[in-house]
Amino acid sequence: MIQYILFALATGLLFHGIHRKLIARIQGRPGPPVWQEILHTLKFSFKQTWIPDTASEVHFVGVVLISIAIWILALGVVIYEGSVLLLFAIYLLHKIVEHGMGLSSGSPYAKFGAIRSVISAASELPLFVTILLIYYFTGSLMLSDIIQWQASNGPLIIPAFPAAVAMYLIILSKMHFGPFSIIEGKEIVSGNRTEHFGVWRAGLEAGFAIKTYVLLNAFVLIFLGSFSLPVLVLIMAVILMTLSFVCAYCPLLGPYDTVTVQSLVTGVLLAYIIILEVVL
């Protein structure tokens, strides 16, 4: 099973590299090579590393371990076709990791990132409504049942299109350099990652790489169905490229604007559910 984890790690890092490269090309820059993020992670792991004087040590190191662990757990949920609700839970636990990362170091910039992470808690609401909509159509939240439902009824993306849009928005809000990544905005240095450098940063990059892989994989499994591994990775790469286009063209939104956009999407989805219930 370790091979799945290593594969997800390498593919996720490669995806991050493709993401950076595409953004750069769209913005007319040459950009780094696509394997840059893999080299980056290795580079950070070779650097001198310590814990800031003001930090709460156990907590500072603990969030790095937790961030890797929860996304490996999420990978397990996807591999064993477990409950979507569990994926949802892990996504929210990731929010706690982001928050804890910012608070643990004692740096004012990191703390700003952490406070923004609380503000951007609105990104959970679209996910919650997505899950309700999936449950409405398939009558189950187990990934295995959802895949079976799609085998007999066609891809879920057709009846539950608004849910797919909402989940796309959720993945977008977790991409680097995206319109919703307010927690790592450059006006607050590096946001909540400011003080996690060297080995800690490399650990976080590893966790985030698995996160990108798992979220894209879950999107494909939930809305398009089950595919063989090469096709799956190809579809994930295509979805990633569309995300890169959005990230390249959209500026970073203000903290409260992200809340507005995400709440609006939730409102539209709720309206869709009510219409489905009442009219159909």
Binding site: A55, S56, V58, H59, K95, I96, H99, G100, L103, S104, G106, K111, A114, I115, V118, I119, A121, A122, E124, L125, V259, S263
Partner: peptide, 23 residues
């Protein structure tokens, strides 16, 4: 979500692992 605006402010208090418990 819509009601947490006050909560975002109270996480400004110091003392990391304790403040984290709020969230």
């Amino acid at each position: 979500a819509p009601f947490y605006v006050a909560k975002a402010e109270i996480t400004r208090a110091q003392g990391a692992p304790y403040i984290l418990m709020i969230h």
